[in-house]
Simulated assay, not measured.
Amino acid sequence: MSELIIEPARTALVVIDLQVRIVGMDVGPHAGADVVRRSARLADAFRAAGGTVVVVRAERPGVAEQPPGSGLVAEIAPRDGDLAVTKHTWNAFHRTGLHERLDERGIGALVLSGLVTNAGVESTARAASDHDYDLVFPEDAMSGFDAAAHRFAVERIFPLLGTVTTTDAVLAALG
């Protein structure tokens, strides 16, 4: 296996749907709180290395008010320099301007984390692949509707799209 190399200036961390109600769901194999903790560690490291952090949140379209718990968990709230994206479909690229905003920053690679692996994360990964991004998947910084669904995505789908690794490997690659 080749060494993971991450160039902070051309790589963005995309943190998907770490909203109170989603983090509180019964997911597997990693608890929502663990996904938040690992994603926050990644976000801090990306910021420190001069990388871009994209914080994605989902809103249900066509409703007057979003369900309770639709706000982001505090640990993932966007900071100065981060990109904030509100999506109305499963993937973070559809009608959000995300690709254009990343392109303006010279971003050609993405590290994806968040919830849930086999919905928002996978849908965003497929769209990112269609836009020719190099993709990295720290599998312990995401979780599925259940462990089997997570395993299927990280063992069968994500290797076709990019590199499956761990949070610690991404942190090491950032230096």
Score class of each variant (00 low, 15 high):
R21G: 00
V23C: 01
V23Q: 02
G24N: 14
V27M: 09
A31I: 12
A31F: 12
R38W: 07
R38P: 02
A40T: 12
A45F: 10
T52A: 11
V55A: 03
V56T: 07
A58T: 11
E59M: 10
E59A: 14
R60D: 11
G62E: 14
E65H: 05
P68Y: 04
P68T: 10
S70C: 05
G71M: 04
G71F: 05
V73E: 09
A74L: 07
E75W: 00
P78S: 13
G81M: 14
D82S: 14
L83K: 09
A84W: 10
A84L: 14
N91V: 00
F93P: 00
H94V: 13
G97Y: 06
G97N: 10
H99K: 09
L102P: 09
E104F: 05
E104Q: 15
R105I: 11
G108W: 06
A109L: 09
V111E: 07
L112G: 06
S113P: 10
G114D: 07
V116L: 15
A119F: 09
A119G: 10
V121P: 02
V121S: 01
S123F: 09
T124W: 09
T124H: 12
D130M: 13
D130Q: 15
H131E: 15
Y133S: 11
L135I: 10
V136K: 00
P138H: 12
E139P: 00
E139C: 11
A141W: 03
M142T: 13
S143A: 14
R151H: 06
F152P: 00
V154Y: 01
E155Q: 13
I157N: 14
I157R: 09
